[in-house]
Structures are given as structure tokens and as C-alpha cells.
Simulated assay, not measured.
Amino acid sequence: MTYTGWILLTASLVGVSCGIVGVFLILRRVAMMADAISHTVLLGIVMAYIVTQSLSGIHMLIGSVISGILTTYLVQWFHSKGVQQDASIGVVFTTLFAIGVILIATNVGNAHLDVQHALMGEITFVPWNIIHVPILGEIPLATFMLSCILLLVILVIGLFYKEWKITTFDPALAASIGIPVLAMHYLFMTLVSVTTVAAFDAVGAIMVVAMLITPAAAAYLWTDKLLVMMGLSSMFGIISAIGGYYFALWIDTSISGSMAFATGGIFFISFLLSPKHGMLSNWLRPGTKGQDPRPTLPRN
């Protein structure tokens, strides 16, 4: 595969995996947890480097996942103590991210680890970090990791699909019939953490947040069926990856930033033109003036 092909494939894998997970973030109304986790994993990366003095290896993934899970537990703990959830996210997110930034500035020294890299990623370097995989041959490490994460996301969502639906739409009913709602919440947030970490180094925090939230929010405007919403969200992620890449080449700018910008463009088009909930559609349809344009929750 060509250099461009590997970049587009890697970005598309981010779009699909984040698009599927992002649907449940939107429906559970915890979208900003994506922003929190995508930034606080920086603390896990820095701590792993300080302990091992190495920027490669499984310890970076382990440190990042632990940091993401810690974020989830702290947010849930503050919320259980009476702090509003958005305030809990804001406090935990800013504090842990600030600790990571301070540690970078004081302890990392001359290592190639900086805030700019954490925010914007280095997707242009993805094709150069190669590993050998049996049967598949030599492929970029980021592409291999994201492929594994996508399979994991599909597996976990598929195995517990009914549980995800009922805990998302009616947690009280789920608890009454014996589904462990809190355990499912932590399992889902762990999945969000793992997905975020896998994409973090290649595409940076900005694109991770964009891919987790915006394609799912756009898909929410087009359908009220859960499976269709997941498919649309994944498709919007792929379109954003490909369109953003060529837009970045055209104006000679950041690839990850352009891909994130493309997700916003897709949402804006959806907000205007979606047949049921778009502003233009509501304006043209007779008898809809004054009605609430917000979509209802997906049915299935």
C-alpha cells in the first residue's frame, strides 16, 4: 500500500471505531467524557515514560488506559457525592491534564514528548513505524493497533448489544431486571479509554474528540434507529478522514486538524439538510413552525 493509503486507512479506522463508541456517548449524554479522557491519557503517557525512560512499548498503552479509567472513576465518584456531572468532568479533566503538562515541562527533559504532539498527533509519521505481522506482513504499528481496537469495539458492542440499549435508554429498568448498570458503565468507559489511547499517538487529542463526538452527533440528526445511527456515524468518520486529508494537502496545513474540521462540516450540513430534523427541512415543511426540532432517541 502507498504512503497515502496507510494514512487514509489509519484515519478511517479511527473514524469507524470512534464513530461506533461515540454513538453511545451521545445517547448517554456524556459526550464530554471523550474530551476528558482524550486529554487525561497524557498523564498516563508521561508517568509511563518517567518510570521506564522509554517512549515505546506496551507500558505506554497500559499507563494511558489506567489514566483513562482513573478519570472515569473520579468523575463517577464526585458525581455520586453530589457534584454535578459536567462539573465533575471539568474538575477531573483540567486537573489531571494540568498535572501531565507540568510533568512534561519539568521531568521529561529532551524526550520527544510535548503538548503540541499530544494535541495534534503525528499521523504523517504513521507509515514509517512498521511491525511484522504473520500472514499480513509489514504494516504500520498504529494501523495494526487500531484494527485490533475496532475488532474489540465490534465484539464488545455485539456481545452486549441488548444490555447497552437498555442501560442507555432506561437505566432504572435495566437495574430492576438485574443488569449491572454500574458495571456496564465502567466497561463502556474502559472501552472509550482503550479506543482513545489507540488513536491518541497517531492523530492527537483534537481529532480523537472530534471523531468521538461529531460524526455521532451528525448521525443523530438523520435517524432514530440505533444500528443505522452507528453505521452513519462510522461512514461520516471515514468521509471526514478522507476529505480532511485532501483538504489539508490543498491548503498545506495540519492533517489531523483538517480531519477534525471536516467532521464539523458534516455536522453543519446535517444540521441544515437532514430530512426530519434539519433546519431547512423544518422551515420548508408546512405546519412545523414553533415545534421542537430536536430528534427523539433512537428506537432500536
Results as ranks from 00 to 15, higher is better:
Ser88Lys: 03
Val46Lys: 01
Phe78Thr: 05
Ala31Ser: 15
Ile50Gln: 00
Leu103Tyr: 01
Ile50His: 00
Gly44His: 00
Gly90Gln: 04
Thr71Glu: 09
Leu27Ser: 12
Val101Asp: 09
Gly22His: 03
Leu55Thr: 10
Ile99Glu: 04
Gly44Gln: 02
Phe97Met: 15
Ala111Gln: 04
Ile58Thr: 08
Ala98His: 05
Ile69Trp: 00
Gly44Glu: 05
Thr94Met: 14
Ile69Gln: 03
Val51Cys: 06
His79Cys: 09
Met32Pro: 08
Met32Ile: 11
Ser54Glu: 13
Ser12Lys: 08
Ile89Ser: 11
Ser80Ile: 05
Ser64Lys: 12
His39Trp: 03
Ile66Glu: 04
Val21Tyr: 06
Val16Phe: 06
Thr10Ile: 10
Ala105Thr: 08
Leu25Val: 12
Ile20Cys: 11
Cys18Lys: 09
Ile26Met: 12
Val23His: 03
Thr94Ile: 13
Gln76Tyr: 00
Ala98Gly: 09
Met47Ala: 07
Leu43Asp: 01
Cys18Arg: 07
Ala48Ser: 09
Ser56Phe: 01
Ile62Ser: 09
Ala98Cys: 14
Ser64Asp: 11
Thr10Leu: 14
Met47Tyr: 00
Asp35His: 05
Asp86Arg: 06
Arg29Lys: 14
Ile37Gln: 02
Thr40Arg: 05
Ser80Thr: 06
Val75Ile: 15
Leu25Ser: 08
Ile26Asp: 05
Ser38Trp: 02
Asn107Pro: 13
Leu43Gln: 03
Tyr73Pro: 14
Val41Ala: 05
Gly15Lys: 11
Val83Asp: 05
Val92Gln: 03
Ala31Glu: 11
Phe97Tyr: 14
Met47Asp: 02
Ser12Phe: 03
Ala48Phe: 01
Leu13Gly: 13
Ile102Cys: 10
Ile20Thr: 06
Ile62Cys: 10
Gly63Glu: 04
Gln76Met: 12
His79Glu: 14
Leu96Val: 08
Met33Glu: 05
Lys81Leu: 14
Ser80Arg: 15
Asn107Trp: 02
Val46Met: 04
Leu74Arg: 08
Ala34Glu: 04
Val108Asn: 06
Ser38Leu: 10
Tyr49Cys: 09
Asn110His: 11
Cys18Asn: 13
Gly15His: 08
Ala31Tyr: 02
Asp86Tyr: 00
Ile89Lys: 10
Ala111Phe: 01
Thr71Ser: 15
Ile89Thr: 03
Asp35Phe: 02
Gly19His: 07
Gly19Tyr: 04
Val16Glu: 10
Ser56Gly: 07
Ala11Gln: 10
Ala36Glu: 03
Phe24Trp: 09
Gln84Val: 04
Ala111Ser: 12
Val14Ile: 14
Phe78Ser: 07
Thr40Gln: 09
Val16Ile: 15
Val75Asn: 04
Ala34Met: 08
Gly19Ile: 14
Leu25Gln: 11
Ala48Glu: 01
Gln76Glu: 12
Arg29Ser: 14
Lys81His: 11
Ala87Asp: 06
Val101Leu: 15
Ala11Gly: 15
Asn107Phe: 05
Val92Asn: 04
Gly63Arg: 01
Ile66Pro: 13
Val30Phe: 00
Thr40Ser: 12
Tyr49Arg: 10
Val30Trp: 05
Asp35Thr: 06
Ile62Leu: 13
Ser67Phe: 02
Leu61Gln: 07
His79Met: 06
Leu43Met: 09
Ala48Leu: 06
Asp35Asn: 07
Thr52Ser: 09
Ile99Gly: 02
Phe97Trp: 07
Ile58Asp: 06
Val41Asp: 02
Thr106Asp: 14
Ile37Lys: 02
Ser56Glu: 03
Val75Met: 10
Ser80Asn: 11
Leu70Phe: 02
Arg28Thr: 03
Thr52Pro: 07
